[in-house]
Design a protein around this nucleic acid. Sequence first.
DNA 1: AACTACGTTGCAGTCCCTGCAAGTTTGCTC
DNA 2: GAGCAAACTTGCAGGGACTGCAACGTAGTT
Lengths: 224, 224
Amino acid sequence: MAVTTTGEGRRDRRKRQTRATLSTTALRMVAEHGLDHVTVDEISEAAGVSPRTFFNYFTSKDEAVIGDAVVDEERLVARLAAVGAEVPAVATLRTAFAELVEDVQADRELWCLRMRVVERNPALLSRLVTIGVRNERTITAAVAARLGLPEDHDYPALVAAVTGAALRTCLGQWARGDGARPLTTLVDEAFAALAAGLPEPRTARDPSQPPALSDPGGLSHNQS
Amino acid sequence: MAVTTTGEGRRDRRKRQTRATLSTTALRMVAEHGLDHVTVDEISEAAGVSPRTFFNYFTSKDEAVIGDAVVDEERLVARLAAVGAEVPAVATLRTAFAELVEDVQADRELWCLRMRVVERNPALLSRLVTIGVRNERTITAAVAARLGLPEDHDYPALVAAVTGAALRTCLGQWARGDGARPLTTLVDEAFAALAAGLPEPRTARDPSQPPALSDPGGLSHNQS
DNA sequence: AACTACGTTGCAGTCCCTGCAAGTTTGCTC
DNA sequence: GAGCAAACTTGCAGGGACTGCAACGTAGTT
C-alpha cells in the first residue's frame, strides 16, 4: 500500500537471495571437493532448500556453478552500433566488450574462483564455451550487418570466434594471476596483438618487455 | 592358423567393426531424431549389442556421436618442431594443422553430417570444444617451448586459442557449404586473415577501403 | 478474513553411466 | 580336437541428474 519497498516486492527479493545462495554454495563446494564429488542433494541441503527447488532455479548442476555468464544481446548490439563505422571491427568489439570486462572485474573474487574451478573441471568449461558460442552467433550477425556483408560470409564468423577466444584466454590468464594485472589491460594487449597479426614477442634472451605489444594504449582505453 | 589376416586378428577387427557401427548408428539416429530423443538403449539395439556393451566402447552417448576427433599430440608437436624457427608462429601452426585438415576432408561425408548435428545440438558442441581445449594446452606448451617463452606467458595461450577458434569456424563454414569449397582453402584464408590483423574485406557498396588486405592470397595460398 | 497467485516440496519415473559378477567367445597350445 | 586362458559381452543392482505432476503453504491483494 504505502511503499512497495523497491517495486520489487519481498518475494522477488527472497528469490534473488535463494538463487544467489544456491549458486555460491554450489561454486564453493565444487571448488573444494570437485564437481563429481558433490551432489545436487548436498548443495541444496547446504543452501537450505529441497533438491526439487534447486532445479526450479537451475536447469543443471553445471549452470548453478557457472552462473549466468550470458551477455545481454541487446546491449552488445547497441554497443557495436554506437561505434563509428570507420573504426575497424576488432577495435569495435574491444570497446563492445568493455562493459562485460568491467562487470567481471568488479566481482574479482567470484570470477577468479569460478575460473579456477572451470580449469579443474573440463566439463564445466564446455558449458562455459557453449554460452560463449551462443554469444558468438549474436556477434557474428551484428558484425555482418555492420559491414554490410552477407550473413554467411566467412569474415564475421571468424572475427567473432577469434575475439571470443581471445577474451576467454584473457579471463584465464587473469584468474591464474589472481587478478593482479587488471583484466582490461590484458584484453587491450590481446586485442592489440590480434590487430597486429599476432606478431611474436621478443624472446627471453632479448632484454625487452614481456607483453606482445609495447604500446597497448594505441587502442582506445577510455570507457564509453 | 594358416593366415593371420592382417596381423590384427579377427577379434580386433570385429571390435573395430562394432565400434564403427555403434558410432555411425548413433550419429545417424541423432541426426534424424535429435540428441535427447534417442536413448542409448535404442542405439545399442539398432547396433545389435546390449546397452552395457555400448558403454564398454564409449564413456558417454556424446562421445559415440562425436567420434574420436582427438588430435595426436606427438604428431602435432613433431610437426611444430619440423618447421624452421624463423617462420612465424601462426604460419607454423597452419602447416601443423594440415594433416588434420586433410584427414577431415577425406571423410567429408561423415564430418559434414557430424558438424551439422553438432550445430543442432549445442550440448555436443561442448564435448567437441573440450577436445579442442585439450589440444589447446598441448599447442600452448609447444609454442611456448618453440619461442623460448615462459610457460605462463600470454602469447602462446593466445595464439593457441585463436588459431583453434579459427579452425573451428572454418570447419563450420565448410560443413555449412557441404564441403563445396575445399577446407584447405578456407583454412588458408582464415590464417592469412589472422596474420594480417583481421582486416575488413571490402563491402559491396564501399570499394573505397584501403587495400590493406583484400587479397588473402598474400599469404601462402599454395599448399605446403 | 478470505482469496489467489506463486514458490516450495515430495513423489514417481526416465535416463545416463558404473562396478561387479557372471556367461560366452576367441585364439592359442598341446 | 580337447583344453585353457584371456578377452569380450551381458545382466543386474545402484547412484545420481533431471522432469512432470499434484499437493501444500505462504506472501500479497481485496
